[in-house]
Nucleic acid binder design. Structure first.
Length: 948
RNA sequence: GGGCGGAUAGCUCAGUUGGGAGAGCACAGCCCUUACAAGGCUGGGGUCACAGGUUCAAGCCCUGUUCCGCCUACCA
């Protein structure tokens, strides 16, 4: 046995303990083959990431579950890994090489990707190393990266399958475009923020007449791309104008006034300018018209105005252009008024640049049918979502789901497995449609030309489609050839002049395959067979749609089985004021700093206590401090036990096997706590589980049991032979309760529990290999009633001390008048415990005890405690004390009165409740009377002393 | 616009089928009682946001209101 040092120093043990666990493969699946395997895949953090509170909470909860299940003998696999995080990582490396004054284009695609890989090799391990500091019990031999060879194979396999099923297709339409990242984004990758803008009212003169029509817009610069003005067909104000032309200010174009029933007559002037190339609504209007309205793209893919904006504006940044357009309109007296206007603006979730809707050609996944199945899987309970408030969000998102844009115009990621033949024109050579020209770059980057298939959604002015910038692209006008392997020659014409699609897939595409791709799919591996579907997914709600919903759809589509049984959605960690933590606000709390300051165990335990279902977490450092105190308490409790293990009383004790009364009590409490904790964990009530153990260890084990055991452990020195205690039973109970407490705590605080456990004479190589305590069958309340008498007696005396300011070091005499045989017997049987805990030098017990003159009194339900304090007692304050007690009881009786004199209550409430209330009433009335008697006696005494 | 969550002690928050309002921190008093002052004992402190309703009984269920927070949406 190793002597525990005086203080627990987390940093001295964390690293070595963790290495010990790894060396011994404790985190690899083992356990009972007959029990259901348990598996979790980690939500892969971005490889560029740095550990934040969200990660810390997320993995702590997973680790608690994993360790708990391992200790309950399940075969547990927890798969770790990281996500390649396409745009984010590319941005990081681009910034990196910018320091060397180069950009990715001058480097070239292959060299750039090499640089990213190099970066990944150097820094990609940072986040996983940080996770290790939390003590996570992942099976690191299973670590995966979304761009791994195996996972890339899975991605290609899925893409090809979906393509061949027609679920993946190409389309040209408006897409959310980030002018800074130069790529398309999915709807989800756009973050909307409310902003104060202004609504500009602009006059468009009617051609050939004196009149004009006024339109209102938040984006005056898009006027340059207007191709119509729309009004509601039933709007009488404008009925006569439909079909007329207006001349578009600042241009030499005229555009028609058209009717569209979606136009809201109430908003603005009821007339809306239509810019099909730069607004999703307008695109829809344009496509509802027959023939379609023209698409004129005046903003380029870098947010700079194109040639089509006209020579006065081409080359201007979009916001510069807005200023100039406004100035020019003002000069031409075209502006009627400006109004302040609140509206929401889309921003890129990676770089926060304002999104520009642009017409481009992109790859999409058809979602509707997959969503239907994914909804079904949840509705039928094949997947549970917790807390259940999230069901509605899930359903409503799935119901309104739109096709998912999966192509990104960046380089870092899974390149789309599609090739185009420059020679053949598609299967029938003609029907693939006419060639169209695409300008591939923003004007100032020089023009590149290329062609794409006409995609038959018609109407778009493809001459002005701005495609992925700075990308050289040659004629591509053929049906895509989609294969898993590199295509070297065209399967249709045999030609070898093939061009691979330059785009990569949305990062979330590979993430959506994570639960099965990490287990080896498309190979049919043992791991896959054993651990798919996974048991639970632990995640934050902000990626419910990004990731969780898509995993469900892909799991069902590809594996024909849900990816996980349970989804547990935890809160987001906010700062102490409830603000979202962000670098710009400067309110970020770094988990690693918390770990440095307080140790991993205290930090983890705090997170567990914070993890209340359905509620945001306001982080507070003070709480960690509080739980560090708890760790200290636990540590010292263990030191106490160690101290007494070799005490003379223990080693010399014969140990007749009989348990001391407190031993029975604490063991019974332990059983009950073990049941509570297991139930809480099974329900993902991490806070309840943590609090139960906390309460037990501190307030039952330490506050009462250990204090009581000091008496048991003493060599019998009382004059009363009957009270001889069994020190052996006490120390054995201490060891046992400590053992099981540590086991209960181990999933929450793995390090200190291991450290203490290994220093005790327990058998085994690690606490993590021991069984988790769960004792439902022995949950009888043995010893709990006896203990109540002891607690009543002790706390009665303590209360007198506290209230009357009597120093704890002053030894007191006391007597207890008992009112039942059981009370008499129990108090007498436990006299030594009571005397020690209450610091008494003598204690009289009996039903005939009389109170002596100046005594303080404590009235309990089956006893009255007298502490004679001649000379010490301030009669006035004693009366005050008793009156305070009396008034509390009187209040309670009043409430009970109201109930028990209410016939409706007596008639309708369950008998159990009535009996309980009656019992309480009796008890309190008796108590009240006794206190009153004592007050009367004290008053008499008071008067006596006054008259003397 | 639609949806969701919150409002309980000075602070941060628990409160699982409706049946005597809790914890931690902070505060006050007495104590270095030999595991622990990162501690022990004792105590003070709450019209459970507001207004109705259901019920014998409401912090908990229903309706409405106010104030916060979040998600979502194409009102230019």
């Amino acid at each position: 046995m190793k002597q525990l040092p005086k203080f627990f120093e987390p940093h001295k043990v964390e690293k070595t303990r963790y290495e010990y666990w790894l060396e011994n493969d404790f985190f690899k699946p083992s356990g009972d083959n007959n029990k259901e395997p348990y598996s979790i895949v980690i939500p892969p953090p971005n490889v560029t990431g740095s550990l934040h509170m969200g990660h810390a909470l997320n993995v702590t909860l997973q680790d608690i579950l994993s360790r708990w299940k391992r200790m309950t003998n399940h075969k547990v696999l927890w798969v770790p890994g990281t996500d390649h995080a396409g745009i984010a990582t590319q941005n990081v490396v681009e910034k990196d090489i910018a320091k060397e004054k180069i950009d990715r284009h001058s480097l070239g695609r292959d060299k750039f990707i090499q640089r990213v890989w190099k970066w990944k090799e150097e820094y990609g391990g940072r986040i996983t190393n940080q996770l290790r500091r939390l003590g996570v019990s992942c099976d690191w031999t299973m670590e995966r990266f979304t761009l791994d060879e195996g996972l890339s194979l899975a991605v290609k396999e899925v893409f090809v399958r979906l393509f061949k099923e027609g679920l993946i297709y190409r389309s040209s339409r408006l897409i959310n475009w980030c002018p800074r990242c130069h790529t398309a984004l999915s709807d989800l990758e756009v973050e909307h923020e409310e902003a104060e803008g202004s609504l500009t009212y602009i006059k468009y003169p009617v051609v050939g007449e004196d009149g004009h029509i006024v339109v209102a817009t938040t984006r005056p610069e898009t006027l340059l791309g207007d191709t119509a003005v729309a009004v509601n067909p039933v709007d009488e104000r404008y009925a006569a104008m439909i079909g007329k032309e207006v001349s578009l200010p600042l241009t030499d174009r005229t555009i028609p006034i058209i009717a569209d029933s979606e136009v809201d007559s109430e908003f603005g002037t009821g007339a809306v300018k239509v810019t099909p190339s730069h607004d999703f609504n307008d695109e829809a209007i344009a496509k509802r018209q027959s023939p379609h309205l023209a698409f004129i793209t005046v903003i380029g893919d870098d947010g700079v105005m194109t040639d089509r904006a006209g020579e006065n504006y081409a080359g201007l940044d979009r916001y510069e252009c807005r200023k100039k357009v406004l100035a020019d309109l003002r000069e031409g007296e075209s502006i009627v008024k400006l109004e302040a206007h609140q509206h929401s603006l889309g921003h890129c979730y990676r770089c926060n640049t304002i999104i520009e809707p642009l017409p481009t050609i992109q790859w999409y996944v058809r979602m509707k049918d997959m969503a239907v199945e994914a909804v079904e899987a949840v509705k039928t309970g094949r997947i549970r979502i917790m807390p259940d408030a999230w069901y509605n969000s899930y359903y409503s998102w799935m119901k309104n789901i739109k096709d998912w844009c999966i192509s990104r115009q960046i380089w870092w990621g899974h390149r789309i497995p599609v090739w185009y033949c420059t020679h053949c024109k598609g299967e029938d050579g003609v029907s693939q449609g006419a060639k169209i020209h695409i300008k591939l770059s923003a004007p100032h980057n020089g023009l590149q030309e290329g062609t794409y298939n006409e995609l038959r959604d018609g109407g778009i002015d493809h001459d002005n489609i701005v495609n992925n910038s700075k990308q050289t692209r040659v004629d591509i006008d053929t049906t895509p050839i989609c294969e898993k392997v590199d295509v070297k020659e065209c399967p249709r014409c045999g030609g070898s002049d093939l061009i691979r699609d330059p785009d990569v897939l949305d990062t979330w595409f590979s993430s959506s395959l994570w639960p099965f791709s990490t287990l080896g799919w498309p190979e049919s591996t043992e791991k896959l067979k054993t651990f798919y579907p996974t048991s639970v997914l632990i995640t934050a709600f902000d990626i419910l749609f990004f990731w969780v919903a898509r995993m469900i759809m892909m799991g069902l589509k590809v594996m024909n089985e849900v990816p996980f049984r349970d989804v547990y959605i935890h809160a987001i960690v906010r700062d102490s004021k409830g603000q979202k933590m962000s670098k710009s606000k400067g309110n970020v709390v770094d988990p690693l700093i918390m770990i440095d300051k307080y140790g991993t165990d205290a930090f983890r335990f705090t997170l567990a206590v914070f993890a209340v279902q359905g509620r945001d977490i306001r982080f507070s450092e003070e709480r960690i401090e509080g739980y560090r105190h708890f760790i200290n308490k636990l540590w010292n409790a263990a030191r106490f036990i160690q101290m007494f293990m070799e005490a003379e009383a223990v080693t010399n004790s014969t140990g007749n096997g009989a348990l001391n009364p407190p031993d029975k009590w604490i063991l019974s409490r332990l059983n009950s706590v073990s049941v509570d904790v297991n139930a809480a964990l099974a329900d993902y009530r991490f806070n309840d589980a943590a609090n139960s153990i906390y309460q037990f260890v501190w307030h039952e084990l330490c506050d009462w049991y250990i204090e009581l055991s000091k008496t048991s452990l003493k060599r019998d020195e009382t004059d009363d032979k009957q009270l001889s205690r069994n020190p052996k039973a006490a120390i054995e109970t201490l060891l046992k309760v400590l053992d099981y407490s540590l086991r209960l705590l181990h999933p929450f605080m793995p390090f200190i529990t291991e450290e203490i456990w290994c220093a005790m004479p327990y058998e085994g190589d690690s606490i993590s290999r021991k069984e988790y305590p769960y004792f439902p069958e022995s949950e009888q309340k043995e010893g709990e009633k006896d203990m109540q008498y002891i607690i009543d007696a002790v706390s009665g005396i303590r209360n007198i001390r506290g209230e009357l300011n009597i120093s704890p070091s002053k030894v007191l005499k006391a007597s207890i008048k008992t009112f039942s045989l059981e009370a008499t017997r129990t108090i007498a049987d436990n006299k030594d415990y009571i005397m020690n805990l209450a610091r008494l030098e003598s204690l009289e017990i009996g039903e005939t005890i009389k109170k002596t003159g100046a005594s303080a009194t404590s009235v309990k339900s089956e006893m009255e405690i007298y502490v004679p304090l001649s000379g010490l007692l301030n009669v006035g304050s004693e009366i005050e004390r008793l009156e305070k007690e009396l008034s509390k009881i009187a209040d309670s009786i009043k409430i009970l009165d109201r109930k028990l004199f209410n016939e409706d209550f007596l008639n309708r409430a369950p008998k159990k409740v009535i009996d309980k209330e009656k019992f309480k009433y009796e008890e309190l009335t008796v108590k009240k009377e006794r206190i009153m008697n004592n007050i009367i006696k004290m008053r008499e005494l008071d008067e006596e002393s006054r008259s003397n």
